[in-house]
């Protein structure tokens, strides 16, 4: 086969393979929805129970993606979960904002919802969110419900 034709075909093959990789990276994966470390700040929040929250879970405020969960750790002195949130620098929140762990849909993934407060001062890198609300654990809810029903039945 002619050398020029061969080179052309191999060139087309390699270029289309690289384009496919680029499509996988930019269109399919989350590279398009993450932001650089430089334009983000980290705040921590402590929860009594994080339920099924995972690292990289979204942080949303009013339903808009404003950041992601950076890491989840356990505080061995207070026995609470310490969650680090990486927030986009474009979105600033007052220091008395509250974080709660919510579930998208009935069986969906868990995410952190941020509700803005009324304070004048804004959250800075390394600050801690004081108001938090833990995940709703379905088993506990059902347990409480059954317990309540049983107590009702006993009083009759």
């Amino acid at each position: 086969m002619d050398r020029k034709v061969l080179d052309l075909w191999v060139g087309i093959f390699v270029a289309s393979g690289l384009v496919a990789l680029l499509v996988l990276a930019l269109k399919v994966s989350n590279a398009s929805t993450t932001f650089n470390t430089s334009d983000s700040y980290t705040v921590t929040a402590e929860f009594d129970n994080i339920g099924g929250l995972k690292p990289r879970a979204p942080v949303k405020s009013a339903g808009v993606l404003v950041g992601r969960v950076e890491s989840i750790g356990f505080d061995n002195e207070k026995f609470v979960a310490r969650v680090e949130l990486k927030l986009d620098k474009r979105y600033r929140f007052p220091t008395d904002s509250s974080a709660s762990i919510l579930t998208s849909g009935l069986l969906g993934e868990q995410y952190i919802g941020l509700d803005g407060g009324a304070d004048e001062a804004l959250l800075e890198n390394g600050d801690r969110l004081k108001l938090t609300q833990s995940a709703v654990v379905l088993e506990r809810l059902i347990g409480q419900f059954l317990y309540g029903r049983a107590a009702e039945g006993g009083s009759k």
Partner: peptide, 19 residues
């Protein structure tokens, strides 16, 4: 379709490991 895909496919953990 696209946004749920992008939310769950990680560049390093999924795409790079596949490569």
């Amino acid at each position: 379709f696209w946004s749920q895909m992008q939310a769950s496919v990680d560049l390093r953990n999924d795409v790079m490991n596949g490569v």
